[in-house]
Design a protein around this nucleic acid. Structure first.
Lengths: 188, 188
DNA sequence: CTTATATAGTTAGGAACCTAATTATATCTC
DNA sequence: GAGATATAATTAGGTTCCTAACTATATAAG
C-alpha cells in the first residue's frame, strides 16, 4: 500500500465538477461550475507539470530554470546579458543571478565583463554547456513530444488556441474586478 | 518605461513556434515542433497561473495552499486529519503541517488531539475560518469565472477534455522512456 | 564639473513546497 | 507481553522563485 498510495495521491488531487458545484451552491452564487472546474484543473495541471519538470531536468543535473537559461543562451549565439535572460525567461534579474551562480560553478556558463558598459556582465555558454544541451536533446524532446502524444495534430492546434485564451484570462485574477483581459497572443 | 517593462516581460516570455523549430532543427531530431510548443506553452501558463494565484489569495491574507486547505475542510464538515488533507491537496504531510501552523496562528483553524488514536491530531475549521471563506467567496469565484470568460460553454468542455489528456501525458516526463501514460480521468 | 537620477547586477531575506530524519503511538508476531 | 514494524505528525534542511535594498557605473540637468 506504500507505493500505491503515492499514485493514488496524484489522482485523487484532481478537482471534480461536483466539488465545484458544492462550493458555489454553498453561497448561492450565480457562477458556472464548469468554469470553476476549468480554472481548478488548470491550476492542478500546472502544479503537476511544474513538479514533473523538475524531476525530468534533475536527471541531467539541471533544474527547469537552469535548463531554460541554457536553452535561451543557445538560441542567442551563446551570449546574453542577465537582463535579457530575465526578460526571455520571465523571471526577475535576482533569480537570473542565482541561476548563473550555479551554472557557472558547474562550468556550463561563464561571466565576462563588458568593456562597453562597466555595469554589464554578459553570460557565455561554455563548450561544456553546449555539450550538455547536445547530450540531453534527444531524450528531452522525445519526452516532451510523448507528453502531448494523446492529442492528434488537430487537437494540438485547438488546445493551443484555447490555452492561449485562458492564459489571457489569467489577468482576471490579478487585475481589477470586471476589467477585460488585455495583451495579445499569436501562434508564431 | 518602468511600468511598461513589467507588462512586456510577461508577454515576451511566451514561447514561439519558430523557437521550438529552431531547437529541434539544431540537433536534426524527428520531433513535431508543435508538440514541443504545446508543452512549452502549458508550462508557461502553469507558472503564470501559479504566480497570479498567489497574488489573488494574498488579497485575503491567504496563500494558494492555505486557501485550498480551508476550502477542503469546508467540504468535509469542517474537520479532517492532516493526512487526509495532504491527500486531497496533493501535497506532502510536511507541507500540510506548515499550512496548519500559520492558519492556526491566524485563528482560522484549530488542532484537536484524537482520543481514538493518539497519533492523530485532527484539524478543525473555526468560525473565523468559515467567515473568511464566506467573505471571499463572491469575489474569488467571480474572478475564477472571469478567467475562463474568453471560452464559451462548448469550448470549456473541449478544453477540459484536451487538458485531461495532456495531464495524463505528464507522466511521460517522469516515467520510463517509451512507456504509455496510465491513470484515468473522469469529468465527474 | 558636480549633483541628481537611472540602470545593471548582486545581495539579503522571505514564501511555498519538497525529501529525509525524528518522535510518538499503534499494531503485529513470537 | 516484548520486540519488531508500521503509521501520524512534526522537525530540519534544501530548492526555486520572489521583493526590496544595495553597489557600482552611466547619463542628464544645472
Amino acid at each position: 500500500m506504500n507505493n500505491n498510495n503515492k499514485v493514488t495521491n496524484d489522482i485523487d488531487a484532481i478537482p471534480s465538477l461536483v466539488q465545484s458545484k458544492r462550493q458555489i451552491d454553498r453561497y448561492n452564487l450565480d457562477i458556472d461550475a464548469q468554469a470553476i472546474l476549468v480554472a481548478s484543473r488548470l491550476m492542478a495541471a500546472g502544479a503537476k507539470l511544474g513538479h514533473a519538470s523538475e524531476i525530468h531536468f534533475s536527471r541531467f543535473g539541471l533544474s527547469t530554470g537552469r535548463y531554460r537559461l541554457l536553452a535561451d543562451l543557445e538560441d542567442n549565439e551563446g551570449e546574453e546579458l542577465p537582463s535579457q535572460l530575465a526578460e526571455h525567461l520571465g523571471v526577475t534579474r535576482a533569480t537570473v543571478t542565482g541561476l548563473i551562480d550555479i551554472l557557472e560553478r558547474d562550468g556550463l556558463v561563464s561571466r565576462r565583463s563588458s568593456s562597453d558598459d562597466g555595469r554589464q556582465r554578459s553570460v557565455i555558454l561554455t563548450e561544456e554547456g553546449a555539450k550538455k544541451l547536445r547530450q540531453m536533446a534527444p531524450e528531452h524532446f522525445a519526452r516532451l513530444e510523448a507528453m502531448v502524444g494523446l492529442l492528434n495534430i488537430d487537437e494540438r492546434s485547438v488546445f493551443l488556441d484555447l490555452l492561449g485564451r485562458v492564459t489571457q484570462g489569467i489577468s482576471a485574477l490579478t487585475g481589477e474586478l470586471g476589467s477585460k483581459p488585455k495583451g495579445n497572443i499569436s501562434n508564431e
